Amino acid sequence: MNCTVEAALMYNSSRKSPPMPAKVGDWCKAIRHLTNCAIDWNSDCKDVTESHFNEESIRGHMHVVNNVCDDEWFLSRYDVLPMCIDGASDAWETCYTSFKTTVDEQKNTTHEWTHYETHFFMCCARALFRRCTLDALFDMPEVCPYEQAVTLQKFSVIVSEGDVYQDCDTNMMYVNCPGGDPRPSGKSLAKLMNADGYNSPSSAVTNHASVLVILCLICLCELLK
């Protein structure tokens, strides 16, 4: 039984969507198992094959473990996401499947992640995945309230860094990526940065009603003086 199969049995899910909070422990156990397998493989095979590629995979797995599995603050935020994850899982999985397919294709072209062309296309894919999840998560306020959408987007960013553990900020010509610049549009970033603007219509009505009640109370107090 290989490491991937063993990890799959630990997590016991074929879905590529974010794990439910109740399953995140099993998900983390699987990630740790894959990390240990990669470390063992690197040690056993470093004299007969190029190991740099695998070393980057190890660092990526460890990045996910450190920033999700071992981060109690993040896990406390993640714990309230069941409804958001359930509602966004199909869209998120679609984004991730496309991202993972592209990354795996690039990985298979070379053993060296830092090869410029491979690095370029992997960074393009990472940016496109982040935009894809951002647009999906911040387009369903009834399912994913603002704070929950932010937390799940942070999870998306961490996972993408785990799969492509590269410096994608330096000397990256994103405008030359296949299909154009994959970075978020100004409209998408505005949703991320503006909690008030993200409110759902029902929330907006509630907020307006609250303001009217407060104004009425102020007027009443003035009349009673």
Rank of each mutant, 00 (worst) to 15 (best):
L9Q: 10
S203R: 13
D71P: 05
A30W: 06
T133W: 10
D167K: 03
Y96V: 05
H208F: 13
C132A: 01
M83N: 14
D79L: 09
A190D: 14
W27L: 01
L212W: 11
H208L: 15
I158W: 01
R130C: 06
P201I: 00
K187T: 15
P145T: 06
C216A: 15
Y78L: 05
I31M: 10
N54G: 10
M172Y: 04
Y146G: 09
D163K: 14
E142N: 12
H119E: 11
F74A: 06
A195D: 10
C124T: 08
G179Y: 03
Y78K: 00
I85E: 04
A136Y: 02
W73C: 05
W92V: 14
S98Q: 15
V211G: 10
S76K: 09
Y174C: 02
W113S: 01
A30R: 08
C168S: 02
K107H: 08
V164Y: 00
D169W: 07
V68Q: 01
L224F: 05
M10S: 00
R59E: 10
R59I: 08
A149T: 09
T118H: 13
V175L: 06
Q106K: 12
L34V: 11
D169H: 07
E105K: 15
G162P: 06
H111I: 08
D47Q: 09
F138G: 05
S89L: 01
L223K: 05
Y11W: 05
P201V: 06
D104W: 09
L137M: 02
G162L: 03
C37E: 12
D139C: 09
G179H: 06
Y11E: 10
C216Q: 08
S13C: 04
V213K: 11
A195F: 08
Y78F: 13
A88C: 03
N207G: 12
F121S: 04
P19E: 00
N54L: 14
C37H: 06
G25W: 00
T49S: 14
E56I: 15
F121T: 04
R32K: 09
D167V: 00
S188F: 03
V103H: 01
A195H: 11
P201L: 03
F99P: 13
H63G: 04
Y96S: 13
T94N: 13
D135A: 14
T35P: 00
K154D: 11
G87K: 01
L217H: 12
